[in-house]
Amino acid sequence: MAFGSKYFGWLSAMAIILAGGWFLLPAGYNTLIQWMAPQLGNYVRPTLVMVNILLVNPMTNIMMIAIWGAAGFLGGVLAGTKKGAFVVGFMTWLFCLGIAGFCVIQMFMTGLNLGTLPPIPPGTSIVDILGIPLIQDVIGGILPMIAGMAGGGLDIFSMILPLVMWVVVPIVVVIVAGILGAMVRPKE
């Protein structure tokens, strides 16, 4: 049963992550999907859902932090051991990464067969795209770097560091929440 409990923990965590990521996608992403999907195909939405799931700025995307926390906690409760909770949390993140990779590949395979970027649809504007938290974070990070580049130097480390942090945050949250779940309802 040890494996079975981890399996159901993983399955529950995946269900929460995917459903939460899909249905609680920030409105700005929908504008981006409406704009890009006619040209890049139906994998635009799943790709952006996975990007929103996997790149989490804890300062601006509290909702995804909560979803990862809830998924990890439930996974931990079902796994019942700290070790099991760790495995469940890590495997959940790893599968999300795999799904994201699959979606990106599918999206570009579709998009390469199509033409140029379509116009932003009527009723929306680039301002709606800029309202996406992830885009705001990226621009917020890029602007000071542009100022730095004027001196001739580009600090690659400071450019990558925020991305690394956003990648690491969900792993840490899901594993810590999982261990907490395992502690709340441990196996004998």
Partner: peptide, 24 residues
């Protein structure tokens, strides 16, 4: 793979009721 693992886990639940492991 996910489905087979699920069936295996469900069968384990039915067969052993958790064996030596059980929840408090």
């Amino acid at each position: 793979l996910v489905g087979v693992t699920g069936i295996y886990s469900v069968l384990g639940l039915i067969r052993g009721g958790g064996g030596s492991e059980f929840y408090q």
